[in-house]
Design a protein around this nucleic acid. Sequence first.
DNA 1: AAACTACTTTACGTTTACGTAAACTTTATC
DNA 2: GATAAAGTTTACGTAAACGTAAAGTAGTTT
Lengths: 148, 148
Amino acid sequence: MDIKQTYSISELAKEFDVTTRSIRFYEDQELLRPTRRGQTRIFSSKDRVRLKLILRGKRMGFSLAETKELFDLWDETLSGNEKQLLKMLTILENKRAQLEQQKNDIAQAEMEMDTAEARCREALAELQKKKKQQAPANDEARQTAEHK
Amino acid sequence: MDIKQTYSISELAKEFDVTTRSIRFYEDQELLRPTRRGQTRIFSSKDRVRLKLILRGKRMGFSLAETKELFDLWDETLSGNEKQLLKMLTILENKRAQLEQQKNDIAQAEMEMDTAEARCREALAELQKKKKQQAPANDEARQTAEHK
DNA sequence: AAACTACTTTACGTTTACGTAAACTTTATC
DNA sequence: GATAAAGTTTACGTAAACGTAAAGTAGTTT
């Protein structure tokens, strides 16, 4: 077997760089459902996947409530009737639209960063030019000073 | 002139589908800097651009504080010395890395949605098959009913 | 002039996503 | 068997991003 079957709370915390507090909070909000040995939580690899999804959701701007909704819906869907399945399909459509929006946003942001960077470099070039005019003999000294 | 030079708070609120409360809050947090005629706020087209950026930032999971930081930094940069310019360049690098991460996240999400959708469709096909076995003569009626 | 509409400030309330502290139990280690 | 290390519950605190109510002003329509 390549992957472990169970995980402790601190293992997961370390792997995904979150606090144990966060993980317990996610359980409290019913996004994770670890079993117990005594009091101690035992996380399955399914929980591990879910944690990964939670964090990705966060990076994509999803709230925990939204993520939970998706989890619940998917659970229902698996054991689901036709209505559930169709509902899931329309929800998937909506999410796809959201992703498209995000891709557009990112593309826009990238373009603006391109022009921002260009302006920065122009301004830097301007400064360099002025410096050279002021002290044209001091070229080497300046360049090494910049690299410290 | 194609674009208006100034905007009222409700104009912007309507255009971008946010509440006036939000806009005032953004001003309070110093992300927008409308001028005044008496008490009434007058927003410039620069403010309008900023509002657009704020909202895009939100969709991309940025906090208002992060966005404000970028605004401030950019303002400093424009009138900036060399140090500011270099700082901005490294920050741009970081943001690019963030965007890469987001693109990866989106690509992953899209793949998972593909498999999720496929499973849904399989499950649906299964259900259809069972239905046919139960009532094989009722085919036409079912298909039209589905399209309502 | 009265009423309506859009705008304003002040200020308290709410939700989300945890942080942090306190006090306790269980498990591993020397 | 003491002690540290990791885990637990309970509970109060907090920052962010507004919502919402109250009460007032400024212009404009009837």
